[in-house]
Computed example of a mutant assay.
Amino acid sequence: MRRTVALTVLVALALPVHAARADDDHRPFRRGTILPSLSLGGSFSRNYGGSLLVGAGASYFVVGGLAVGLHLRNVTTFYSQYFKDQVGSDIFAKIPTNELSLTPSLLWVVYRGERFAPYVSFGVGPVFLNKQRGVLGQWTVGPGVMIRAGGSLWLDLGFGLGMRFTKDRCQDAYGYLEPVTEYACSLTWGFRGGLVFGLGGRKPAQPSAQPSPPANYQPPPASSYPPPQPQPVPNASPPSPAPPVEAPLEGPPPPATPAPMPVETPTPANPPAPATPPPAIAPTDTTPIPPGENLPIPPPA
């Protein structure tokens, strides 16, 4: 039994871990998503009664759509009064009525839709019986579908098949009456329903704004032109304000300019005045004057 559980855990952990390093997409149940779950199920038999399953667990998606998980389930069996009367009180007191299972599991979401996601689950682990009836092994498998109820909340509906092992241990635990042994150690089936919550999830890396150059990228040769010189930055100080214009002082008005004299046009009745001849300039005697003589005085004009 211990070897079976250990082998199941190793198989679950030995999934393609290298694939988890690949980039994922934006669909539900991507890599890194944690899926806590609450399960509710049951079964019914016309002759023996029914059972109620209540459980909780969590699954972790190592790659998109594929998760490993661990689930704790408790199954309580309710036998009919007809069955109790048939087997008797002494034998019925030895029949286990409560089963607590701890099941490592695998979950494969076949289609990762935004509204619904069909899946297939598989699990194997120990089952602890009450009334000191020992520990059995049990495997379960079955399809199901998760329907989005809003946000990260999903409604889980599924169908499951299961069977306990080994057969010898199961017969020892339920070996009080042939019908009980056949019912408890045979293939069982039932419907299940519950709520699951998709939490977290690694988002795909965003592409960089600038693509990286190819491996054979060669940088362009350096230019032979001298580098441009920095230009002086103009003074950014605001211009000084202009001085205020002062109003002229009040005083006496300036003297008026006299009007020009009118010029009369000459007519026969008003002949023009004769022009005044310029004064005559006496000729200058250039004869040399002997020394000792007085200069002659020219007569008045």
Rank of each mutant, 00 (worst) to 15 (best):
A236C: 00
P260W: 00
F197D: 02
L35S: 06
V263R: 05
P253K: 05
F197P: 01
R21E: 12
R112W: 08
P28S: 02
V245E: 08
Q229C: 04
L7Q: 07
A173W: 01
G175K: 06
N235Y: 04
V11H: 01
D25C: 04
L13P: 03
Y48R: 11
T8K: 07
G123F: 02
V180Q: 15
K203G: 07
G175C: 04
A215G: 07
G175S: 02
G57N: 06
R73L: 08
I281P: 00
P253N: 02
P277D: 08
G64T: 08
Y176E: 12
A247M: 13
S121D: 09
N294G: 11
S223P: 15
P288M: 10
R31W: 05
N47E: 15
P290T: 11
V68K: 06
V141D: 00
G41W: 04
S224W: 00
V127G: 04
S237M: 10
L66Y: 12
T257L: 10
R27L: 12
H18R: 14
S101F: 05
A269L: 13
P252W: 00
P226G: 05
P126S: 05
E178V: 08
T257K: 11
P291A: 15
Q86E: 12
G125N: 04
P260T: 02
V135T: 15
N270S: 13
P221Y: 07
Y174K: 01
F92N: 13
Q81L: 05
L40S: 03
R30P: 10
P296V: 10
A20T: 11
S37G: 06
P277M: 03
Q171N: 10
V87Q: 07
D90P: 00
A67L: 03
I34A: 15
E99M: 09
G158F: 01
L107E: 11
G134W: 05
S186L: 00
G55N: 03
P298I: 10
T76P: 00
P296F: 09
T267F: 01
N294R: 10
F92Q: 13
G160Y: 06
S89T: 13
N235A: 12
S240T: 12
G50M: 06
A280E: 13
P272C: 03
R192D: 12
Y119H: 10
V62L: 15
G65W: 03
C185K: 03
L199S: 07
D90V: 10
G150V: 09
I34E: 05
A14E: 06
Y183S: 11
E246V: 14
P207R: 14
T265H: 05
L106N: 05
E99G: 01
S101R: 13
W108S: 08
L15Q: 15
P262A: 13
L13T: 15
I147T: 09
F83A: 14
I34K: 06
P207N: 09
L107D: 09
G32W: 11
S237Q: 14
V263Y: 02
G69H: 02
L72C: 08
S121R: 09
P254C: 01
R192M: 08
P36S: 10
L107Y: 03
P239Q: 09
T103C: 02
M1T: 13
S101Q: 13
M261Y: 02
N130R: 07
P252I: 00
I95Q: 10
F92K: 06
P298Q: 15
P221W: 02
P211V: 05
